[in-house]
C-alpha cells in the first residue's frame, strides 16, 4: 500500500466508532431491535422456503444444472444481504443530508466524505443473509463439483468483491444525484429491481435481456460471473473485464461525487 500507516489507522478507528455508535443507536430502541431481529428471521425463513420450493421442482435454467443455479442464487442472496447491511442504510441517507443541510458537517470533517457517507452506519440485520448467501454458494458448488479447489474459491471471492463494488458504485452515483434532484426519484429502487434479475443465470433470459443485463445494467457481473468463477467455468477475459469494471465504477463514482459537490448549495438554515 502506498498510503502511509497513520491515515489508514485513522480510518479504521473511525469505522469502529461509526459502527459502534450505529449499533448503540439501534439498541437504544429495544422493541425496534427485537422487531428487526424477527424481521430478519422471517426474511431468512422466506429465502429458505423459496429455495426449497425451487429445489422440489428441480428445474434447470439456461442450461445450468439445478446446483449451479443455486450458486447464482447464493451470490444474489449475498449481495441482497449487503444491500440491507450497508448500501441501503447509508446511501439512502444522503438525500436527507442534502435536504436538511447536515451534509455540511460531513463536508467539514477532515475525512473523505464519500467514505463517511458510504460507511457511517451498519444494519446487522442483513448480516445473516450475507452469511446464508456464502454458505449456499459453497454448498451448492460442492454438490455440483464434488470438491472445492482453492483456486476457483479465491477467484470467486475476488469477483464477488468486485460485484459488491460495482453495485455500490452504481448505487452511490444514483444517490449522489440527490445534490440536484433533492428527491432521488427512487432510482435506487430500479437498481434493486435490476439486482433481483440477478437471481438467475443471465443465460436463462432471452437474448435481448441478456444483452441489457451484460452491457447496460451489469447484472451479469453481479451474480453470474462470481458463480461461474466458483464453478470453474470462467474465462480469464470475463474475470479481467469484471475487475476492470469494478475499478472503473469506483473511480467514476469518486469523480462524480467531486463533480456533484461543485453544485452543492447547502440547504439554508
Amino acid at each position: 500500500m502506498a498510503m502511509p500507516v497513520a491515515p489508514v489507522l485513522r480510518y479504521l478507528r473511525t469505522l469502529r466508532r461509526f459502527w459502534g455508535t450505529a449499533l448503540a443507536t439501534q439498541l437504544e430502541y429495544q422493541l425496534n431491535a427485537l422487531i428487526e431481529l424477527l424481521a430478519m428471521a422471517g426474511n431468512l425463513a422466506g429465502s429458505l422456503l423459496l429455495l426449497w420450493l425451487f429445489h422440489r421442482q428441480g428445474v434447470a435454467l439456461g442450461g445450468w444444472s439445478w446446483n449451479a443455479v443455486l450458486v447464482v442464487l447464493g451470490a444474489y442472496t449475498f449481495l441482497d444481504g449487503l444491500t440491507s447491511t450497508l448500501l441501503r442504510p447509508n446511501l439512502s441517507r444522503i438525500v436527507n443530508h442534502v435536504q436538511e443541510g447536515t451534509l455540511d458537517f460531513v463536508l467539514l470533517k477532515p475525512i473523505d466524505s464519500q467514505f463517511w457517507l458510504s460507511l457511517r452506519t451498519i444494519s446487522p440485520a442483513g448480516l445473516p443473509e450475507m452469511g446464508l448467501g456464502v454458505v449456499l454458494m459453497l454448498w451448492a458448488a460442492r454438490r455440483e463439483l464434488g470438491a472445492l479447489p482453492p483456486a476457483p474459491l479465491l477467484a470467486a471471492a475476488v469477483l464477488l468483491l468486485a460485484a459488491a463494488v460495482i453495485l455500490y458504485a452504481l448505487w452511490f452515483v444514483l444517490a449522489a444525484t440527490s445534490i440536484w434532484f433533492v428527491k432521488t426519484w427512487n432510482a435506487t429502487e430500479v437498481l434493486r429491481a435490476a439486482l433481483t434479475a440477478g437471481r438467475y443465470p443471465v443465460s436463462a433470459y432471452p437474448a435481448g435481456l441478456r444483452l441489457l443485463f451484460t452491457l447496460v445494467l451489469p447484472v451479469a457481473f453481479l451474480t453470474t460471473v462470481p458463480a461461474e468463477a466458483l464453478l470453474g467455468r470462467l474465462t480469464p477475459l470475463t474475470a479481467l473485464t469484471s475487475l476492470l469494471l469494478a475499478c472503473g465504477a469506483l473511480v467514476i463514482s469518486r469523480a462524480f461525487w467531486a463533480f456533484a459537490l461543485r453544485f452543492y448549495t447547502s440547504a439554508s438554515s
Binding site: R10, R16, A24, E28
Partner: peptide, 27 residues
C-alpha cells in the same frame, strides 16, 4: 462551523459517543 439551527450530535446517544466519533475522525 457551529450552526444554531443544525446539529451534528447523534440524537439517540449521549454526547460522549459523538465526541468519540469526532476524536477518531480528527485523529
Amino acid at each position: 462551523l457551529v450552526m444554531g439551527q443544525k446539529q451534528q450530535l447523534i440524537w439517540d446517544l449521549p454526547p460522549l459517543d459523538s465526541l468519540r466519533v469526532n476524536a477518531a475522525v480528527y485523529g
